[in-house]
Design a protein around this nucleic acid. Structure first.
Lengths: 153, 153
DNA sequence: ACGGCGTTGTTCAAATTCGAACTGACCTGT
DNA sequence: ACAGGTCAGTTCGAATTTGAACAACGCCGT
């Protein structure tokens, strides 16, 4: 009912360039991880988060929230990683319902093995294509977006 | 073999904020399209491209290239849209192998119906969260990335 | 005209994704 | 103690995605 505020040229340029860039960047990064490390990007992200979390691990919901993914998707991916011995699931000490995921030594090894190629590709498709000023501007804008969107959910 | 050039704090901040923002933004946009327009984001993108292409339509490969998606994925999505009468497939006049996809009047209607809600959400999760300066900076950075990555493929 | 080679689009199986429904367990107020 | 509501995680079916394999066609030089 309310008149739509259409995007002007500058806004449209921002949206379309953002769309194209994200598609290209993710396509490249995912291809690298699959081909060279045998991990999907979601799996890599899970391992990174659990690595950062340390020996106490993380609750499934905490993981899902910080990865901005669905609960069911996380269950599946953690299941895959558990099959391969890169992650373990354990009961949560403070909540019977809870499940705590932890990275295993094998998981840490997999991460160490995957990281150099991953970082290299991330540089090749994003970081090294921008100068420091552009990089800071991206961080500034994306941080603004994230802080607003975090509140809404 | 070569020493990995790890990301410094600023570079890491750029990458992680970019990652988080893209996940959040796409999650929101896809949810809006599915819930309010019954379209997936890939489908919406197909319709937009075909709408922009006009009555001559586009070859499948051109579509796949401009949408940065796989050929097989595009075949599937165009098939879905064709089932629903939003798109037609026709022989390409200059190449027997070719298939030209065109948007139908019903497809244009679907697009018109979906657009306002989509634009509104795009504003809510990205455009309106940034001031003009940030917007221009994003466009600048993403355009740099795209022009580089376009050449590589 | 005719191979050889790249291109076009589809098909296939396998893996992944999602939301909705579900089971159990927590928690608040009474 | 207990009922109602919320939350944690999994399961389910349906839809989607991917690369590899494939068939058919165009293009080029000889």
């Amino acid at each position: 009912m309310a008149n739509t505020r259409w995007l002007d040229d500058g806004e449209m340029a921002a949206w379309t360039s953002f769309l194209e860039a994200t598609h290209r960047v993710f396509r490249e990064v995912e291809a690298q991880l699959r081909d060279e490390a045998g991990l999907s990007h979601p799996q890599y992200e899970v391992l990174i988060k659990l690595h950062q979390a340390g020996p106490d691990g993380l609750r499934m919901t905490e993981l899902a929230t910080s990865l901005i993914t669905s609960k069911s998707g996380l269950t599946y991916q953690v299941g895959q990683l558990e099959k391969r011995g890169l992650v373990t699931r354990g009961a949560c000490p403070t909540d019977t319902r809870g499940v705590t995921a932890r990275i295993t030594p094998a998981g840490s090894d997999a991460l160490r093995a995957a990281a150099p190629g991953h970082v290299e590709r991330v540089r090749a498709v994003l970081i090294d294509l921008l100068d420091r000023e552009q990089l800071d501007a991206v961080t500034d804008a994306m941080t603004s977006v994230n802080s607003r969107l975090r509140q809404e959910s």
